Structure formats: structure tokens, C-alpha cells
Computed example of a mutant assay.
Amino acid sequence: MESEKLKKLPLKQDVETKKVLKKLASAHRALAELKGIVSSIPNSTILINTLGLQEAKDSSAIENIITTHDDIFKAELNLDGFKSLNAKEVQNYISALKKGFGLIKKNKILTNNDII
């Protein structure tokens, strides 16, 4: 099977099709609803931390770094040190997500220098 080469950005074709633009309204409504729900949570960082943990775990699995939620929670609490190198790697990923989120919240932008 031949692998397709990725096209260089920006794409020369118009990606703002009718189908995409129609989905935009429902996506906007869903985000507004989520924003309203989050504002009703006394400590919204709980939601962000949970989503970040799941995202870090799933993204790390793509790189064949497999761990359990249990190991990640133990690593976050630093119970008995890091027993699993995979959990430590996912913890580093979570820390990077939190750092990036904090920078975006503070500066309203994430720059290449922040990423580096």
C-alpha cells in the first residue's frame, strides 16, 4: 500500500465548504453549552484535569506508552515514587498540557517560544 504524502500548508483548496460551515453552528452551540456548564462547577480545574489526564493517556498510547489510570493517579500523588516509567511519561505530558493551558489563559496566546 502506497503512503500518501501530506500536502504543505496552507492548503490551496477551500476547506470552508457548505458542509463544514453548517457544522460550525452546532459546534458553536455545543461549546457555549459546555462553557455554561463549566462556569457552574465550583472548581472547574477538576474538569480540565480529568480531560487532560484522559488526553495524555490516550495520546501516549499512540506512542506505545501504555499505562493505567490507577498508575497515573498514584504517580500524581507520588505514592511510593514512580513505579512505572510509562506513568511518569504521561505525568510529564499532563504537566506540559497544564503549563500550556496556563500560558494561554495568562497571555491569550501560545507562541513558538512557549512551546520550545
Rank of each mutant, 00 (worst) to 15 (best):
V15Q: 01
V15H: 01
V15Y: 02
V15A: 00
E16W: 11
E16K: 06
E16M: 13
E16V: 03
T17F: 03
K18F: 05
K18C: 06
K18G: 03
K19D: 14
K19L: 14
V20E: 04
V20T: 08
V20A: 10
V20K: 08
V20G: 00
V20Y: 08
L21F: 02
L21R: 13
K22I: 15
K22N: 14
K22G: 03
K23A: 14
K23F: 09
K23W: 07
K23V: 03
K23H: 08
K23G: 07
L24W: 07
L24T: 12
L24R: 13
L24C: 04
A25H: 04
A25I: 11
A25C: 04
S26I: 13
S26R: 12
S26W: 10
A27W: 01
A27F: 04
A27G: 09
A27Q: 09
A27R: 11
A27N: 11
H28D: 15
H28A: 14
H28Q: 15
H28E: 15
R29H: 10
R29Y: 03
R29W: 01
R29E: 12
R29N: 11
A30Q: 11
A30T: 15
A30G: 05
L31R: 05
L31Q: 09
L31D: 08
L31K: 06
L31C: 06
A32K: 09
E33N: 07
E33K: 08
L34D: 01
L34Y: 03
L34Q: 04
K35I: 10
K35W: 06
K35D: 15
K35M: 05
G36C: 05
G36D: 10
G36A: 07
G36L: 09
G36W: 01
G36Y: 02
I37V: 14
I37K: 07
I37S: 05
I37L: 14
V38W: 01
V38A: 08
S39G: 00
S39A: 14
S40M: 12
S40P: 00
S40V: 06
I41A: 00
I41R: 00
I41K: 00
P42I: 04
P42H: 04
P42S: 12
P42Y: 02
P42N: 06
N43Q: 11
N43C: 05
N43L: 08
N43M: 06
S44K: 10
S44Y: 05
S44W: 03
S44L: 02
S44I: 07
T45N: 03
T45S: 02
T45G: 00
T45Y: 01
T45L: 04
